Amino acid sequence: MKKYRLLVLTDHRGHSTENSIYPLLLEMRKHKRCAGIDVASRGLENNRLFFENRAVKNLFAAPVSQTFAWDEAGSAFKKNLERVSPRTYDAVLLRLPHPVVEEFWGFLETEFPSVYFINNPAGMLKTGNKLFMLNFQELCPPMKACHSIEDIDEMRKQFPVVLKPVMSYGGKGIVRIKGDEVVFSEGEKMSFGQFAEAYHQHPEPYLAVKFLRNVTEGDKRIVVCCGEVLGAVLRYPPADSWICNVAQGGSSAESAPDENELAIVARIDPVMRENGVIFYGIDTLCDDEGRRELSEINALSIGGLHAMRTPAGVPATKRAAELLWERIYEEHKAEK
């Protein structure tokens, strides 16, 4: 049986015991098609030139062993480091959280055109922009790209809105506007007039979305790999908050996608795959009638996988490993 080598690009600095990359890579390591997995972290000083300056020869990776696990020191990413090149691997798995500058995606595409990336760098750039959601407005709450305070004012006069900074991440910089009251996700409050003054001084693009009052019902993360739904997890906001983000103090519980959410996946998956994105997560929220609507798409560093099981009861990380190796096999078989 043909076996393959995998390189993983990630950043261990934001990891915790809850990060899915550890059980996922351990499952991939055990698979019969695995000839070896190396992992390179953006968080290592050794790799700064590769990730920041796009210096091709300055990438160092550590082998994934059977003891691959998280610790505060990031030991798993520092042991037995060797200089590597993505060109020498059969596939490269991208698990890079924000921030990632646009130039880095272009660097990967230009410098390593023959490398099979999961996911495609150009596809990551395109689908990682919040404005990509505008391609699926029929699946989402009312939304609009706002490039001026007038755009924002028009939206907030229709209903309470949430403003999502186009290039932000992790629930940072989100703004809720209800009438004249403006509340930032970090807790700061001001009037809309004060917000308008601040905006004029530092304008930035937002995706404005109708605020859904059922936010306490939880934000459901659903993970998809190679067209297959792997599972779901519900993430609840902390007490007295409206942000369903575990990184900001929320909680989570295992869940399952409903029929409407499966229909959402069926609608967006062909578009994602056209862009070379086969491993991603979507988030849904309950609308005012209790129906779940699409709220986010995430293909960068997909969270929640470790807590999920497939409908057949298989750990989602195990099933993801099977699907990813099969996809790598199919990719190389097609090249012959």
Rank of each mutant, 00 (worst) to 15 (best):
E296Q: 11
L262I: 10
V56S: 07
L212N: 12
L9T: 00
G170L: 02
N53A: 08
E331N: 13
R273F: 12
F211Y: 13
G187D: 13
V92A: 03
F68C: 09
G290M: 02
C140S: 14
G74W: 02
V115F: 01
C140K: 13
S185D: 02
E296M: 06
G14P: 05
F112D: 00
Y199I: 01
M124R: 04
F68A: 05
T10Y: 10
C34N: 12
D180Y: 03
E259Q: 12
A256G: 12
M308N: 01
N298S: 11
R29E: 13
Q201E: 14
G290D: 01
A208K: 04
W70C: 06
Y280A: 04
Y236W: 13
T67P: 06
F107Y: 05
P63T: 11
F60A: 05
R54M: 14
F159G: 02
V100N: 04
P311Q: 11
P142A: 14
R42P: 00
F184H: 14
L6G: 04
R13N: 13
G303T: 15
E289Y: 11
N47Q: 00
V265H: 05
I282N: 10
I149N: 03
Y22R: 07
E186C: 13
V64P: 04
W70N: 13
A247R: 15
V84I: 04
T317R: 03
Q201Y: 14
K172A: 09
G313H: 01
M28R: 02
L262Q: 14
A256E: 15
L134P: 07
M143D: 04
L139A: 09
F132S: 06
M167T: 11
R309D: 06
N47V: 00
Q248H: 12
V115T: 12
E254M: 09
G276S: 05
Q248S: 07
P238S: 13
S16L: 05
N245I: 06
E293V: 15
E138W: 03
S301Q: 11
S168L: 08
A62T: 08
V182K: 01
V101N: 09
E27I: 05
G250P: 11
E52L: 13
S41N: 15
V8K: 00
L9W: 00
Y116S: 07
Q137D: 15
L49W: 02
F107R: 01
I302R: 03
L7W: 00
K210E: 14
E326N: 06
V215Q: 06
H98L: 14
F279Q: 05
M167W: 15
S85I: 04
L262R: 15
L94F: 00
S295I: 15
V64I: 12
E52N: 14
Y4L: 06
A145P: 09
E109A: 11
G43L: 03
K3M: 11
S295M: 03
K30N: 13
E52C: 10
L262V: 10
N214P: 04
M28H: 07
E52D: 13
K157D: 11
F159P: 00
